[in-house]
Design a binder for these strands. Structure first.
Length: 424
RNA sequence: GUGCCUGUAGCUCAACGGCAGAGCGCUACACUGUGGCUGUAGAUGUUGAGGGUUCGAAACCCUUCAGGCACCCCA
């Protein structure tokens, strides 16, 4: 129902079940990052708008950022991306960092966009970068990190693929077609749109942009040539490294992968789910040069990628790859028989916790039926009952909700009995 | 920022301009010391919000909010 005060459009509310999914993604992200030795880091969530004005696209800064004046009159921006902050932080300690720097981060970002499937105004993003090495082998490592993540969540190569291209290769192909550098942005845009448009419409659009028919035909030939990578030394080395890293089954060359022109200068890549119910990339990245030129650092090359939690989460759910939701860490519920037994139950629960068992006590002496029902819905495995009969004999009734069996044991044997049931 | 579609019970959805309903879930009881399964009974509600047309609006019109699809963009 509509509440009086709604959440801000495009923001996310994480009920425990959604939080479980977010944490699942976070854990897999961390595992993949750490498997390659990357260090976790983070940057401020709010930055001055100037940080983005320098390097980010105009669209991003002017139209799609959450920017407002703080109480002192300065313009601040909720971070729409992490790379500018990375550049500043690297530049600030460029002389003392131990290169190559391998850093990863997972945190919130905001972009003022039209919310729709796979896209919200508030999202979490995994960023991972290697800085200070410029080689196809370093590019291969980042692609291997991405592949490791995909594999770890169960998206095997039949379900997901990483498509790779190279900016320098495409530039030389564009040169060969006589496409002048000033037209590159348009042509890059054109390539991005090809999969979304009817072939005939795409072609007339290309002609509208000022390409000649010969150039359009040449472009189509380039974009249809999946052996083009053999002309690129960088890609040849990249694929050799990917094979050695054991992830080549995930990777395909695709000359249609361009990505926005903002940072990328060499290898670029994007991962998609192959069934394609969502046409959005799961993750994307590539090699960039001159990362630090606008924040006062020495030239530095890097490679990295980013993955949003929204698309990744949808794809995991649609593929049935999210583990069953576990509502609580507790495996034991201690019921409260009646008011006179209340503190006995508290003492029992405290003892369980001292012995390393997560335990809940029902917060009031309700009917046992209600307490058991609560335990069942919360997927608790064990329910303890301490009633007058048990107290009289210094015993505790232990019911295993999975098997339905109940046993009554001496108080001193409770912890071991529970542990046996949980390990069975 | 643009275009199209949608909004009804907690959830999924019905209802020709004429009494707002079903399934699931929920509550109670069968079962006053025990969940699931079953049976019986019961309660669902500002039809997203605001205004208009009409004897009469969930339905038609306008505004607005939210969601979806596409454009734009994807840093």
């Amino acid at each position: 129902m509509a509440s009086k005060i709604q959440s801000v459009k495009g923001t996310r509310e994480f009920y425990p079940e959604q939080m479980f999914l977010r944490n699942f993604i976070y854990e897999k992200v961390r595992a993949a990052s750490q498997a390659f030795g990357y260090q976790e880091w983070d940057a401020p969530f709010i930055e001055t708008i100037d940080l983005y004005a320098a390097k980010s696209g105009e669209e991003l800064v002017k139209k799609q950022s959450f920017t407002f004046q703080d109480r002192g009159g300065d313009f601040v921006t909720l971070r729409p991306e992490l790379t500018p902050s990375l550049a500043r932080m690297i530049a600030a300690k460029q002389g003392e960092l131990n290169f190559p720097v391998r850093w990863w981060s997972f945190g919130p970002f905001w972009r003022y966009e039209q919310p729709q499937k796979g896209r919200s105004r508030e999202f979490f993003q995994w960023n991972i970068d290697m800085l200070g090495v410029n080689s196809p082998e370093a590019d291969a490592e980042l692609i291997a990190v991405a592949a490791t993540f995909l594999r770890s969540v169960g998206l095997n190569p039949e379900r997901a693929a990483i498509y790779v291209n190279n900016r320098r290769l495409m530039d030389s192909e564009f040169d060969a077609l006589g496409i002048v550098p000033e037209k590159r942005l348009d042509v890059s845009n054109l390539v991005d749109r090809r999969s979304k448009m009817e072939p005939s419409k795409w072609e007339s659009y290309a002609l509208e942009l000022g390409l000649t028919q010969v150039q359009v035909d040449g472009l189509k030939e380039v974009l249809g040539n999946f052996n083009l990578w053999k002309k690129s030394d960088e890609l040849t080395r990249l694929f050799a490294a990917l094979e050695a890293l054991g992830v080549k089954d995930y990777v395909k060359f695709d000359p249609n992968i361009m990505r926005g022109l903002l940072y990328y200068t060499g290898t670029v890549f994007e991962a998609f789910e192959t069934s394609g119910s969502l046409k959005r990339a799961i993750l994307g990245g590539g090699r960039y040069d001159n990362l630090l030129s606008d924040v006062g650092g020495q030239p530095l090359s890097g490679v990295g990628f980013a993955m949003g939690d929204v698309v990744a989460g949808i794809i995991l759910q649609e593929n049935g790859l999210v583990p069953e939701f576990v509502p609580t860490s507790a495996s034991v519920l201690v019921t409260v028989f009646d008011e006179s037994m209340w503190l006995k139950s508290f003492e029992m629960a405290a003892q369980l916790r001292r012995e390393g068992l997560d335990a809940m006590v029902f917060p009031e002496p309700a009917k046992l039926q209600k307490q058991f029902k609560f335990a069942d819905k919360m997927k608790l495995k064990i329910v303890l009952t301490i009633g007058p009969d048990e107290v009289a004999n210094d015993q505790v009734a232990i019911k295993n909700l999975v098997s339905g069996q109940q046993v009554v044991v001496e108080r001193g044997a409770v912890v071991n009995t529970i542990k046996e049931m949980l390990n069975a």
